[in-house]
């Protein structure tokens, strides 16, 4: 069973050919990373999958529904968290979640909001406006708003861009928990280590097409077999940073 099937997808903006025939299959229940540099077309692809943009050619099916013919069913079965935090700044964090829960027809919006606040370590911050949050907290609230309603498929467009290392690892843990609970996750990233850390399968989007696709092991096989070399393992700057400022997941911004 595929959560997302994309066939021959094309999209241009005037003379700029962003997607030139993309084929993609995201298996249900997996974490799938769409890897590409800035401007590779990742956001365009995600927006077409989530019905925000229409394609010039090709077909997209989400949980069996056609994005062009059944956009409402597609929107019911997925949630999108975009690159820019889509949060109402006048409402508190909790009110933002309640708003989404009501729009998603949750029978008990307040309880749904409180459950998400707790899950995302925002219970205390829930009564405040998002303008008082740290970047990591805003991103967590944004993701929590996307998860209201419990859609079986979650699209995350660059979920960790701009986050500090601790918030980044915290976000990774959240994504792993999501997948462990059976949710399909499609995430875009420009960070190689993020794809390596999280993804069951990885697709590399370059110049508007998928140039490689497979598990990490599949992709490794594309290069000559590893040779054994003895090198001195120096700690990376990230190791040093995390050692001195404390491990990931520590409360922040409170």
């Amino acid at each position: 069973m595929q959560a997302i099937e994309v066939h021959g997808l094309r999209k241009s903006y005037k003379d700029l050919h962003v997607l030139r025939g993309v084929d993609l299959a995201v298996p249900a229940g997996s974490i799938y990373a769409l890897l590409g540099s800035n401007g590779a077309g990742k956001t365009t692809l995600v927006q077409i999958i989530s019905t925000l943009l229409s394609a010039d050619a090709g077909q997209v099916r989400v949980n069996g529904f056609d994005t062009a013919a059944q956009p409402r069913q597609v929107r019911e079965s997925l949630s999108l968290t975009g690159q820019f935090a889509a949060i109402d700044g006048v409402h508190t964090g909790r009110e933002n979640l309640i708003l989404l829960a009501r729009l998603r027809r949750d029978p008990d919006p307040e309880r749904a909001a409180d459950a998400l606040l707790e899950r995302f370590d925002l219970t205390e911050a829930g009564a405040r406006r998002p303008s008082t949050y740290s970047g990591g907290m805003r991103r967590r609230l944004d993701l929590a708003m996307g998860l209201v309603g419990g859609a079986p498929l979650v699209l995350l467009d660059e979920p960790t861009t701009g986050l500090d290392p601790q918030s980044r690892i915290q976000m990774w843990n959240i994504i792993r928990e999501l997948a462990a609970s059976g949710t399909t996750v499609l995430l875009t990233t420009q960070y190689l280590d993020e794809a390596e850390q999280l993804a069951d399968r990885i697709a590399i989007l370059h110049d508007g097409t998928i140039i490689q696709e497979g598990t990490l092991a599949d992709l490794r096989k594309l290069l000559p077999p590893a040779t054994i070399e003895h090198v001195l393992k120096e700690p990376t700057l990230e190791d040093i940073f995390l050692t001195f400022v404390g491990s990931a997941g520590a409360p922040e911004g409170a």
């Binding site: 925000l52 929107r75 949630s79 999108l80 889509a86 949060i87 729009l103 998603r104």
Partner: peptide
């Protein structure tokens, strides 16, 4: 401009 419209449009409303 702030992404709220994108979020609303991604919802089944």
């Amino acid at each position: 401009s702030e992404g709220m419209m994108l979020r609303l449009r991604s919802l089944p409303i």
